[in-house]
Amino acid sequence: MISSDSSRASGLSPLARWLSAIEKDFKFPNEDLSDVVSNVLFFQRNWMGFHVPAMLKVAQRIYNDVARDFSEPVANYEYYLSQVEGLFLPPGVLDLDEYGLPLPITLRFTGFGMRMGGSLNETLDSFITLARNSTVRNQLSEVELWFADDVLAGLGASL
């Protein structure tokens, strides 16, 4: 269980309680928290982004081949496949990961009103505008600012 009454009573911060619970409940023997995070990211990027969609495409081809033999309607999993490949996130969110902006920080920027779902250029322009905005910057942590500034520099749009 992620939170417990005993950890609340100990005076630990919410983050410390959460990390303690993860370490206690979700890691295998001989793993540390870094291993747990790496395993989650590996699953998310490799299995959800590549393996599961590939398996669904194969299942669709097999089903459709059998369905045609029996004059049954064929299946089309394309929409679902695109959702799985995009990790069920709005279009464009994963594109920013390719520019070096981690998913959680991208989601923070969407919370600030970053436009998603249009063209990549529109998304990047929206990110640049928000990342330069002092009101937004004041709400970001030092780490989030470092990532945002690094992406801005990579885009040639430094402050």
Results as ranks from 00 to 15, higher is better:
residue 58 V to S: 06
residue 141 S to C: 13
residue 76 N to W: 10
residue 120 L to P: 00
residue 98 E to S: 05
residue 97 D to Y: 06
residue 56 L to W: 10
residue 80 Y to K: 08
residue 103 L to N: 01
residue 55 M to A: 12
residue 122 E to H: 05
residue 75 A to N: 07
residue 54 A to W: 05
residue 104 P to F: 03
residue 129 T to Q: 04
residue 104 P to I: 06
residue 89 L to D: 14
residue 127 F to L: 02
residue 31 E to Y: 03
residue 48 M to T: 07
residue 90 P to S: 12
residue 137 R to L: 12
residue 137 R to A: 13
residue 49 G to Q: 11
residue 124 L to A: 05
residue 108 R to T: 14
residue 108 R to G: 08
residue 120 L to E: 03
residue 43 F to W: 07
residue 136 V to Y: 00
residue 34 S to H: 09
residue 127 F to G: 00
residue 103 L to K: 04
residue 36 V to A: 05
residue 122 E to A: 04
residue 41 L to G: 01
residue 86 G to V: 06
residue 63 Y to R: 04
residue 77 Y to F: 15
residue 132 R to C: 04
residue 51 H to Y: 14
residue 83 Q to A: 11
residue 74 V to L: 08
residue 72 E to H: 07
residue 69 D to N: 08
residue 97 D to C: 12
residue 77 Y to D: 08
residue 82 S to R: 14
residue 70 F to K: 01
residue 43 F to C: 04
residue 141 S to D: 14
residue 78 E to I: 12
residue 102 P to F: 03
residue 138 N to V: 03
residue 103 L to I: 08
residue 92 G to P: 03
residue 123 T to I: 02
residue 83 Q to W: 07
residue 49 G to K: 10
residue 34 S to C: 11
residue 58 V to H: 09
residue 32 D to E: 10
residue 62 I to W: 00
residue 52 V to G: 04
residue 142 E to I: 15
residue 107 L to F: 05
residue 55 M to G: 04
residue 107 L to Y: 06
residue 36 V to M: 03
residue 84 V to I: 15
residue 59 A to L: 15
residue 125 D to G: 10
residue 98 E to G: 14
residue 91 P to E: 04
residue 47 W to C: 02
residue 112 F to H: 11
residue 116 M to G: 05
residue 42 F to H: 09
residue 32 D to M: 10
residue 97 D to R: 09
residue 127 F to Q: 01
residue 96 L to G: 00
residue 142 E to Q: 11
residue 69 D to M: 13
residue 92 G to L: 05
residue 56 L to E: 09
residue 101 L to F: 03
